[in-house]
Design a protein around this nucleic acid. Structure first.
Lengths: 191, 191
DNA sequence: CCAAAACCTTGCTCTAGATCAAGGTTTTAG
DNA sequence: CTAAAACCTTGATCTAGAGCAAGGTTTTGG
């Protein structure tokens, strides 16, 4: 048991993993502790890392022309998080990645990750799974916006993360739901 | 030049393709003509095919509890279309796939496609690209819903498909934008 | 080719959620 | 520990877009 165990477990659910591959992986990922509100990526930078969250959580967002934070994704424990768009295209990121809380994570540089995708079948599988999950999650989120009311979206979020309201500030949750903190405050009364 | 040329061109933009692989591919895809409004997938069925559109267009949508059609994606020429969620998980589809117009397409059975993903590098690359594009498109669509007005979303759609308003019925476009046909009709006056 | 059906537009009204203001509470940093 | 800052709630308006009705236009299929 070490700081890499959560990552090994994650991968093993997708593809068998021998000891040699494990130790190879451990040399590619960097264990990192970040403080609350610390940035892992800022707008305009190219996204150079893929992050795996061990403890704590991250948020991925962009800032709209009015200066509002629009949160696209929360990454909690055992989730990968990166700005895939910048990661894939090599273009500067339009998004920020920031820690919501004191967070521990494993970071792997983009170039090494993409090499492993080509050379290590378990990592090819991990990447494919990342993309597939990201896609499925996105589809659900689109349908949510297309047809659900704010209250229904809140309930849906609470089904997935029952404790999220006490874990993260309402402001962040409102942003994720695409509503104002005022509306969220009123909706909480209706739950 | 044959009905497979658009597919070959599509793949060659991602990965070199030798003649042998081309003819192997031609044996896996089935050329198909479908009529306007014909279904390629119905709710409750497992999605067994991945489709590549040669000519015409498809729409992917689900029907909400009120019986409203919620369109998630239009697939025009040179796009792959499938219910990836059902395709990946093997679960019954919640979506319909239907032709908007008289459409020509290439269909490949899921199992064959997934075998090719593992065995043919160009197809592994195609699948990765499909997932990456689907993801990037979805992100943009989410941000659109999170922060843009109906008029801004319409303008954004017209930037991507300038002729879409004359090509498809307004009803379908309204559904894609997440607004009623009444609102779309009014917005058109503001363009 | 023609009737029926589907579709589009426009006016009127209604509502979910935004915006603004003001007061209370919790968190943060020195 | 404490003051400042950030955050949350609640009330009073305001507005984008929904819902409904009615009339005109286009498409469809026999």
């Amino acid at each position: 048991m070490n700081e890499f165990s959560p990552l090994h477990s994650y991968i093993e659910k997708l593809h068998p993993l021998d000891e040699e591959t494990k130790s190879q992986l451990e040399q590619c990922f960097i264990f990192q502790k970040v403080k609350k509100n610390e940035f892992l990526l800022q707008e305009g930078e190219v996204c150079k890392y893929n992050y795996f969250v061990i403890k704590g959580s991250l948020r991925l967002y962009k800032v709209d022309p009015k200066g509002e934070e629009l949160i696209r994704y929360f990454a909690f424990e055992n989730k990968f998080a990166t700005n895939l768009t910048s990661f894939i295209t090599g273009m500067p990121s339009e998004e920020f990645i920031q820690a919501n809380e004191k967070t521990e994570l494993l970071a792997i540089p983009k170039s090494i990750f993409l090499d492993l995708v080509e050379s290590l079948p378990p990592i090819n599988r991990v990447y494919r799974n990342m993309l597939e999950n990201a896609y499925i999650t996105s589809q659900k989120r689109i349908y949510n916006f297309q047809s659900y009311s704010a209250l229904e979206r809140l309930k849906w979020l609470l089904e997935q993360y029952p404790r999220i309201l006490s874990r993260l500030p309402s402001k962040l949750i409102a942003s994720y739901l695409g509503i104002t903190p005022f509306t969220l405050s009123r909706l909480k009364a209706e739950l």
